[in-house]
């Protein structure tokens, strides 16, 4: 399968196979009016299989979302067809307005204007908890 290389934009590489769609949705890429490719189950020497996302536009991307969904993913910033920067994101300490608390008893269910904030509670288990009610993110 051939996907054109991009001139100015972002390539999110080494996404754990199966996580690409979740990342695509949480980054809101479905709402963009630019060329975006989600390639699933690409053969990888290191990983066996991986997903890749290519965004053919110089747009702001919430790196915290990438670190939350797949901290091992890499981000390549492309300028004028050249690799400008290669980044590994890692897990962010806090996530703001990326996911919602599902606890019906949480204050965020009634005070809709509050930011949805989660903190990294356990790095080894890649676990996030709501800062208000301590409920674990799913």
């Amino acid at each position: 399968m051939n996907i054109d290389s991009i001139r100015d934009g972002i390539v999110i590489d080494h996404i754990t196979a199966g996580c690409g769609m979740k990342l695509y949705e949480l980054l809101g890429l479905d709402k963009l009016d630019v060329s975006v490719a989600l390639i699933r189950n690409v053969t990888s020497r290191k990983m066996g299989k991986k997903d890749i996302i290519k965004i053919d536009a110089d747009i702001p991307v919430n790196f915290d979302v990438i670190g939350y969904v797949d901290p091992s993913a890499t981000v390549n910033i492309i300028k004028n067809g050249e690799l400008l920067k290669k980044l590994t994101i890692g897990m962010p300490e806090r996530l703001t307005n990326v996911i919602r608390c599902r606890n019906p008893r949480c204050i965020t269910t009634t005070e809709q204007e509050l930011d949805q904030v989660f903190r990294l509670s356990d790095r080894d288990r890649q676990e996030y908890r709501c800062i208000y009610c301590d409920t674990k993110a799913n």
């Binding site: 606890n103 008893r105 204050i107 709501c130 009610c133 301590d134």
Partner: peptide, 23 residues
């Protein structure tokens, strides 16, 4: 009754807040 309400209050109040029970 809502969990986390005292934290929300503390983030806005300009005086100390003591949580007397949040759910």
């Amino acid at each position: 009754p809502k969990e986390g309400a005292a934290l929300v209050a503390a983030q806005s109040a300009t005086v100390p807040v003591v949580n007397a029970g949040d759910g």
